[in-house]
Write a protein that binds this DNA or RNA. Structure first.
Lengths: 140, 140
DNA sequence: GCTCAATAGTTGATGATGTCAAATATAGAG
DNA sequence: CTCTATATTTGACATCATCAACTATTGAGC
């Protein structure tokens, strides 16, 4: 123990946390523009096209109660963005998959999120590469 | 126009976005532990001790409607964590400040958030320094 | 001074998010 | 077959978040 994380790690972490707080507020306007809620965007993000996943996995990915996912999927389903299907192996499980419409909306969302902000462009290419390398290691 | 952001910036951005999504899910359990909601944590984070700020600024910081702040502050006030006070210069404005209890809870929250995850410790000190430098420029 | 548009905050209505406890249905161990 | 565990749903309830409407105050311009 005697944890004592080194100061640079703390600085970096603080900046990352701050970033994620501010970033979080950026999602809302984009979501509104696509007529989605932030939570619905989060679900779409987890649903890769042609990769149906059980509702339980969505709850895990969202770190929320399973019962919450029911309503979330209900609303996405009523918009025609996702579909519930039966699992082959386990009859308790409902797998969720994107509809074509949902896949298109997801792509639009992901593309909009993917546009890097000005600040990032101001970095040198070398710095960008370094950042990529570091973040990749950070996220496994 | 002919935007074409360079690929490294995009990679870095994608990783940052992914990070902020996953990070976001980490706040919920911590908030629950402190008997706060994520939104309330966000408010506390914006309120530095002994620096009262107008409710309008909170709304800006949260990127939400001003009317939302009313309820948020109501609940924090009823927990004894913040206080509404009159502004000196503008009688329309109510400034919000942490109570001692609120300041203590904020400190606890910030400290828990500040603990860097393992991944960060695995980076070399040089990489950590680089990361700090880059992020600092990224966030202004 | 007076008028008028703009701003800060609140309220009420409404829908979305999120938790919990209880229920159903199925799986899997023994 | 019995018993326990898991996946999902439902209903009750608090919170979050938006909008429109309202009050109070400010500040600009006449």
């Amino acid at each position: 123990m005697a944890k004592r994380p080194n100061p640079h790690a703390c600085d970096a972490w603080q900046l990352l946390v701050k970033f994620s707080f501010t970033q979080n507020t950026q999602v809302s306007p984009l979501a509104a523009e696509l007529e989605l809620s932030p939570a619905q965007c989060h679900v779409l993000r987890l649903l890769e096209p042609d990769k149906p996943i059980p509702m339980r996995h969505l709850a895990d990915g969202l770190c929320c109660d399973a019962s919450n996912v029911t309503g979330l999927v209900d609303r996405l389903e009523s918009k025609g963005l996702v579909r519930r299907a039966a699992s082959e192996e386990d009859r308790r499980v409902r797998v969720i998959e994107l509809t074509p419409k949902g896949a298109r909306l997801r792509a639009a969302f992901m593309e909009r999120m993917a546009a890097p902000p000005e600040g990032l462009e101001r970095l040198s290419v070398r710095e960008q590469q370094t950042l990529v390398r570091i973040l990749a290691r950070l996220l496994e």
